[in-house]
Design a protein around this nucleic acid. Structure first.
Lengths: 145, 145
DNA sequence: GTATACCCCGGTTCTCCACTGGACTTTGCG
DNA sequence: CGCAAAGTCCAGTGGAGAACCGGGGTATAC
């Protein structure tokens, strides 16, 4: 599981939504895309996927936009990645039936490695990322002085 | 880090070489390719990469072939994957300079996840895989009865 | 010297990722 | 109502990389 553009864009967008969660107003695609340097037509697809996954809610029409569907401290990075990277990918991985004993042993080890990295991703929520970002900003100010 | 054909083929080939390590005779590409169902011209490239990485040694000419360069219990899966998947991939990952604070925070989390899965891969050697395979074979016999 | 292996380099096909475009629908506001 | 501003759906493109194949060269055992 390497970091793809897709996942990174989705994370950035959700982070922007989480930071905006206090105000009642929804954020629009153009705004998120502009401030995070993401191609807007592409971000649109990702937000649609996140909506179908139930992670964000959308408001159509003028003054519309997107809001986070849940609390920032309840949404883990693993949920986000699983949603954005597609469940059918897991299916394709699972349905490759092992042709040899060696193959299935290798596959088991890889699943273990995958579980390990999934556990890390499950250990972080959007809220955690916001806090890490703020801590990082403080650090940057320290360095600037 | 998902399991690619490349890595799986390389693992299978090295497993065959490890199982053959007792005898002094080298294994030939055709033999490995035939018994593991790997396209031989492709396997040739992978073995060349493994040779340049110092994981196998080759013997040219008639009665030639490949032998493991080291002891099966000293070669970890992480070494193999790093060798076969290319070091320049890590470079490309590392050299993507973060454009925003959010981006670098995300990147750090992903590195942590990567480290976790790398640790799992480092915890297994070729010898371990051979033993897992043998245990699996015993299980299959039990089921057969 | 010849057969048998590895060695090197290049090409081909195919799939997927990142990205773009256009037509449509829904909503707010004058 | 009518228009503009937003999201929604579907369809396509371009480039990159993965998997694979072929041909000619070189070393080695017999």
């Amino acid at each position: 599981m390497d970091l793809s553009c897709k996942s990174e864009y989705a994370l950035l967008a959700l982070l922007a939504l989480a930071a905006n969660a206090g105000r009642g107003e929804p954020l629009q695609i153009r705004q998120i895309a502009a401030e995070q340097n993401i191609p807007d037509r592409y971000l649109e697809q990702l937000l649609a996927t996140l909506r179908r996954g139930g992670l964000v809610r959308s408001q159509r029409g003028a003054k519309g936009g997107y809001v986070l569907a849940g609390e920032p401290w309840k949404i883990t990075l693993l949920e986000i990645v699983n949603c954005i990277e597609g469940v059918e990918t897991q299916g394709a991985d699972a349905q490759r039936e092992p042709k040899s004993v060696e193959g299935s042993v290798i596959f088991e080890v890889w699943q273990e490695a995958r579980s390990a990295s999934d556990a890390v991703l499950q250990g972080y929520t959007l809220q955690d990322l916001l806090e890490k970002r703020d801590a990082r900003r403080q650090l940057d100010i320290m360095y600037y002085i």
